[in-house]
Design a protein around this nucleic acid. Sequence first.
DNA 1: CACTTATATATGCGCAGTCCTATATAGGTG
DNA 2: CACCTATATAGGACTGCGCATATATAAGTG
Lengths: 176, 176
Amino acid sequence: MSLRHAILGILSIQPMSGYDLKKTIDQSVGHFWTADQSQVYRTLAALVEDGLASRRTVAQDERPNLHLHTVTDRGLVALDEWLASPLQTPPMREPFLARLFFADRMPPEAIRELLDVRRREVSEQLAALEAIAVSVDDADIGQVLRLATLANGIAHAKTELEWLDDTARRLERTAP
Amino acid sequence: MSLRHAILGILSIQPMSGYDLKKTIDQSVGHFWTADQSQVYRTLAALVEDGLASRRTVAQDERPNLHLHTVTDRGLVALDEWLASPLQTPPMREPFLARLFFADRMPPEAIRELLDVRRREVSEQLAALEAIAVSVDDADIGQVLRLATLANGIAHAKTELEWLDDTARRLERTAP
DNA sequence: CACTTATATATGCGCAGTCCTATATAGGTG
DNA sequence: CACCTATATAGGACTGCGCATATATAAGTG
């Protein structure tokens, strides 16, 4: 649904090829959005088709040609409409919690292991986020907002780790 | 992917009709999973097709007939295999953060409003979760795990609210 | 020369899920 | 009697997306 809009947003800051767009998504907004490579190209094609972006083939000497994508005026309007449109909370779907909910079918040590694996994953995520985050003084609104999205991921990762500790403790107190 | 398994899990606790299953999903696991009604029926049909569940038509006097679904032995095996299988973290997708990331295209008061709307939504979610949560002493492992999934939602909701406060404060300090 | 890697774009296949609509039974309400 | 609500099941159309694969250019490596 809003990969379209995320792409419009990125292209509105910096026109680029599908290839660079995929890399930008992974690097700059990867902490709150992911996109399959083929889906990026498909979505770009759809945006051009709908007149929200335009493409210009750029010949390169030492690399294959690329399509440079730029947001059109109509694209900017669509982007701003999306930004101003009512928030619709996406359907909750937490596969890890789904497992935990039914995990009492497994022996206690398997449950502990499940929590441990989760802890390792979240720890890695947290480390990756903290490696990106930099404190900025004298920031403009855009920088503050972008940093806030990072801070969001960091805060939730820390909460998840605390909750894992708490849950593991409760389990130890319960398991025989 | 794991609606199949969530359904197997629920049916392993209590055999029921598709209709009741949909209600159970909304009420009991709604804080970490949602499912469309038609998808519930389709998934049930697929489970029966694959021999993981069986259905028995139950005639009712004062209501339409229903299909009572029970997990088969093979279904229980599939459920346990899923529980023991490696966790695969789902792709990150946070539409709200996506918006916030590009929100500096909007005037400051629209950004404030975006944060406020989010705060109201999360507050409601938190209230709903806290209304369900009950403290239980003398709980078995299953109860501890089920409560933990609730506690997870509550912890993250609180974190989100704190982060919203923090972000709003930073914005006030930045905006002219 | 064959192979691998990076750059760059794109299609085919198929699944899971959403939205909408249809169908049927039965009780309650105006 | 018409209408609404709850119970109960299900199909059609469509979308977004993931995975695999194909294609092409060019540089570097063994």
